[in-house]
Every structure is written in C-alpha cells, then in structure tokens.
Design a protein around this nucleic acid. Structure first.
Lengths: 190, 190
DNA sequence: GGAACTTCCTAAAGACTTTAGGCAAATCGA
DNA sequence: TCGATTTGCCTAAAGTCTTTAGGAAGTTCC
C-alpha cells in the first residue's frame, strides 16, 4: 500500500485550487479525496471535518490577500496606494474566485481575530495615512473602503456589471478617482 | 390521508422564513418537508429541484426589497432619498438575514433580467436625479452606491464591525454623509 | 357515479459526512 | 537491526440530503 502523502497543508492547498475551479461551496471532502485518489475517510486524520476544511481555505486566502496587499503598498502613498490596494483585491478575486469567496466566508470571532484579516485592516488604515483624517473619521473611512472594495468585487464577480455600458474597468477607475477625491475632502461633521 | 395544501407559493414563503431562522444555505428540501410534516418527495410536484427553491426565495427577497425601496423613496429626493434607500437595505438585511443572503444569490442572466433586481437598479438611478450627474458618471455612481450598500451590509452582517469603536450606526451615518458630499462634488474626469 | 386530474405517498438509488476499528508502513529506541 | 510504537490510509457502516419512478387516495367536474 503506497501512501499518498496527505498533510493538512496539502489538502488545504488543493482545496483552494478546487475552489477556484468549481466554486467554494462545491468544495467537499469527497471531491478532495477523489483528487488525491484516496478514500474520503482518510481525510479525517488531517481535517476535523468539512467545516474545518473550509475555514482553513478561508485563512489561506486571507493570508495570500494580505501578502499581496502588503507587497503592493510598499513604497506607495496617497492615491497611488489606494489604487494599488484596490487592484490587489479586484485582481485576486478575478484570478481566484473560489479563494476570494473563501476569504468572505464567515469566521467565528476568535478565528477572525487570529487571521490575516487583521493585517488587511491595518493595511487599509495605512492607506489613509496619505490623507488627512483623524479619528473617528479614519475608522469610518476604513469601513467605507472595505465596503466599496468588497461590494464592487462581489457584484462584479456575480456578473452584475457585465453586458452593460460603460464597461466595468472604466467604472472601477472612476470610482477610485471619486474615492480619492472624497478622502481628500472628507466632510466635516455637521 | 389529509392533504397538507402545499403550493409553490407557500413553500417559497416558508423557505424564506426558514432562511431567516437557520441561514440561507441551510435551507434544504428536507427541512422544508419536515416543516410541513410531509415527505420530501412531495415537494417535487411543486418545485423543480432544490436549486429552483433557492432561486425562488431569491426572487421573493428581491421583490420585497424593491417594494420597500420604492415605498421609502416616494416623495423624497437628494440626501433624504439616499438615506432612506440605504436604510431600507440595511434594515432589511438585519431583520431578514436569510432573505438578504438569498437576494445576493447568483441568478443566471435571464432570470436576473426578469427579477426585481432591475427595479432596484432603476430606483438607485432615481436617487441620482437629485444630484447633478450625467452619463457615464451616473452609471459609475449607481455602481458605487450598489457596492457600498451591499458591501457595508454584508460586512456588518458577517460581524465585521461589531465589538469595535465607533459603533456601526455612527459609521453608517457618516458614510452616508460622505456619499452625499461625494455625489454633490463628483470629480470631473481628469 | 365515474373519469380525469392532482396531491401526496412509498420505494429506491446515488452523493456527501462522519465515526469506529483494523492492517500496514514509517519511525524510533535499544 | 529488530521490535515496538506511532502514523497513514483502509473497510464498513450509519445518517443526511437529492431526485426519480410509480401508485393510491383525494378533488373536480360532467
């Protein structure tokens, strides 16, 4: 009996690839076992259960996203940083739709607190250093940016903006212009 | 044998309630059958399949959302309209998380084209009548608003903003102020 | 009342999840 | 290097959900 060499690491990585190919919610222990030419039960030595698999894929995706964002932000500031960060989000979602969906998978609070999601939030805040916002407006702005990026990418991925003019790329560019303008002219509290 | 009086209508309605109680992706034909105290196979006279059920719940949610939005927008314009529309989204998602998730369920293009999603898009565009935007900026703005509302509500529902200051309500208010300001001062194309 | 239709049923097959228990391969101590 | 222990993958089995096929009881309408 030749061993397949399963590890949690390899399973999660393969699960992420599977997610990109067939969609995050089509990722099942069975499909993963088939991919390794192994019986399903064998996975349960490496994964607590099916939910555990999905959570780990989500954590992987968040790490990747944070790494790319950190890389993209290095040496940039202001609108340059804003655009670079935004494009990391959008490009990642387009290149890895399954992983991106995974990154949006709800995590319980403790898991979330230990995830790379925290790093992403810090990076978002770092972008705002190029703009003149102080608390609590900075937090409001962080939340706005998170909402726009996530919202746009998620609507775009769902096909919301396809087959209608103007094309999505143009809206994306103009929305980034608009956000930059907004951050430079953040309205004072009435 | 007493009949249960199943109809597609009643099943979809019960499915929507079930979604709010246990989450949209926990809505199964089996669970629905249990709720009606009926055998699962009986549902298949009224629903093509499980996917059909989910699609119908999604369409119901979109209708409800569009109805509420239309009602909220009646007689309002400008920032007043913007806030009313945004709150419909947010309140609906908080009151009916399962239905809201359903409303975000991907539909194939033809189904989407025949859904109340179209009405929602028209209403979003109507809000912009209170601002001085012409094409194609109006379309960009529609997409921005859709992204923010969807993004914010979805992050909030996932618990993204809880347990951190300032509280979510305050961010929401300030973000609406910011969007109003942005729409009034939409940057010209460079 | 009977024909035609509708509603719900039983039965069954296929897919996914998860646990229990077992044999064989890899690893490690002496 | 050999025996013991640990680890990896297996078979088996039970439970859940989906979907189809075909049948019997209720409803409708002439």
């Amino acid at each position: 009996m030749v061993r397949a060499g399963l590890t949690t690491e390899r399973l999660v990585r393969a699960g992420a690839e599977l997610a990109d190919e067939v969609g995050f919610d089509q990722v099942t222990a069975s499909a993963l076992a088939r991919r390794f030419d192994v019986k399903v039960a064998s996975l349960y030595s490496h994964l607590r259960n099916s939910q555990d698999l999905k959570t780990r894929i989500a954590l992987l995706a968040l790490e990747e996203l944070a790494d790319r964002a950190a890389e993209a932000l290095a040496g940039r500031s202001g609108k340059d940083a804003l655009g670079a960060f935004a494009n990391v989000y959008r490009d990642y979602a387009r290149a890895h739709p399954g992983r991106y969906a995974a990154a949006r998978h709800p995590l319980d609070p403790e898991t979330a607190a230990g995830s790379a999601g925290v790093r992403i939030a810090q990076l978002t805040r770092a972008i705002l250093r190029g703009y003149d916002l102080s608390e609590p407006d900075q937090t409001h702005a962080v939340r706005l940016l998170g909402s726009v990026f996530h919202g746009y990418v998620s609507l775009e991925t769902a096909g919301g903006f396809s087959h209608s003019a103007p094309d999505s790329q143009e809206s994306w560019t103009r929305i980034l212009d608009a956000l930059d303008s907004l951050l430079r002219n953040w309205p004072a509290h009435p």
